[in-house]
Simulated scan of single mutants.
Amino acid sequence: MKKLTGLAVAMAASIASTAMAEDKVVRMGTEGYYPPFNYFDASGNVVGFDIDIGNALCEEMQVKCEWVTTDWAGIIPALNSNKFDTIIASMSITAERAEVVSFSDPYYFNGSQFVVAGDGSLGSAMPSDLAGKVIGTQESTLEVKTLQAYFKDSEIRLYPKLDDALLDLDNGRLDAVYAGQVVLGEWLAKEDGACCQFVGEATRSDGNLGTGIAVRQEDTELLAALNGAIEAIMANGTYAEIRDRYFDFDIMEKPKTTSEMYN
């Protein structure tokens, strides 16, 4: 009887522990304007690769995901102000950002590339090809630093959202847009992108250590749980299943760096 009672207590504790884990909510912060990684569907729900990965990680950690959207420029301050618990918004891991947040292991690598209007007559999109041209990109991104470092003879215009820059390119107010190649490829595949085409090669910004999930620096337990879940979904096939919904290439492959390209 004592053995049965002890077993019942242990089972009850296990059930309570599981219920507590499932009741725990992790608030996932994202932007919503970076398809196919994070964007709004016709019903206004945020969807995309980042969202599917986040949901898979929550399932692995036995917690509930709650999605919160915010503007890109203020996303790190919003995290540190406790508006949400993580940033999973295709954020590149850099030493500068790591001074104010902690990052998970990378869950993909993203190269950046130029799209130009017209017939693509701007050569290979080297700095000399784009001298005197107007280039747009989204503010507070690594692309800004690349343009400022290597394209000093071009006019650089910054936009709160990448969509705004692409609209100006489509309307002839920009000569080129520089951004993540996957996002630009998604845009070019739509009717909106009929005006334009890729030029040059995709590169990875200097200091870009891959795309990770950001958490507040004091949230060490959450960071460890996220890294464990990333490892688990990569090992059990869940990551590959999600990746294949969006891409037909290996997004863990590292593109060459901008210094390798332009120096």
Rank of each mutant, 00 (worst) to 15 (best):
Ala165Gln: 04
Ser17Gln: 12
Ser90Glu: 05
Leu223Trp: 00
Ala12Trp: 08
Ile75Lys: 03
Ala202Ser: 15
Met11Tyr: 13
Val47Cys: 11
Arg204Ser: 14
Ser104Met: 09
Trp72Glu: 03
Leu167Tyr: 13
Gly48Asp: 03
Pro255Phe: 02
Thr141Tyr: 03
Lys161Pro: 09
Ser124Met: 11
Leu162Asn: 04
Asp105Leu: 07
Thr86Gln: 00
Ser43Cys: 04
Thr86Gly: 01
Phe37Tyr: 15
Ile251Gln: 02
Thr220Pro: 07
Asn208Val: 05
Gly193Thr: 03
Ile135Arg: 04
Asp192Glu: 11
Gly29Leu: 00
Ala214His: 00
Met28Gln: 09
Ser259Ile: 07
Phe247Pro: 05
Arg243His: 08
Lys145Cys: 03
Thr5Met: 15
Ser124Leu: 13
Asn55Glu: 10
Ala194Lys: 13
Tyr159Leu: 01
Ala13Ile: 13
Ala12Leu: 14
Lys254Pro: 00
Val134Thr: 15
Gly123Gln: 14
Val25Ile: 10
Tyr239Cys: 00
Met20Arg: 13
Asp219Leu: 09
Val182Asp: 14
Gly54Thr: 02
Asp41Glu: 05
Leu209Asp: 11
Thr70Ser: 15
Ala235Phe: 10
Ile76Val: 12
Asp244Glu: 04
Thr70Ala: 15
Arg27Leu: 00
Gln113Val: 09
Leu4Pro: 06
Glu191Gly: 07
Asn171Pro: 05
Ile135Lys: 05
Gln197Arg: 14
Gln181Phe: 08
Asp23Trp: 11
Phe247Val: 07
Glu201Cys: 05
Ala240Pro: 04
Gly132His: 14
Ala19Cys: 11
Lys3Glu: 14
Ser205Val: 12
Ala229His: 01
Pro35Trp: 01
Ile233Cys: 07
Asp248Phe: 04
Glu221Ser: 08
Asp105Gln: 13
Tyr159His: 06
Pro255Gln: 05
Ile233Leu: 12
Met20Ile: 11
Ala125Pro: 01
Asp71Leu: 12
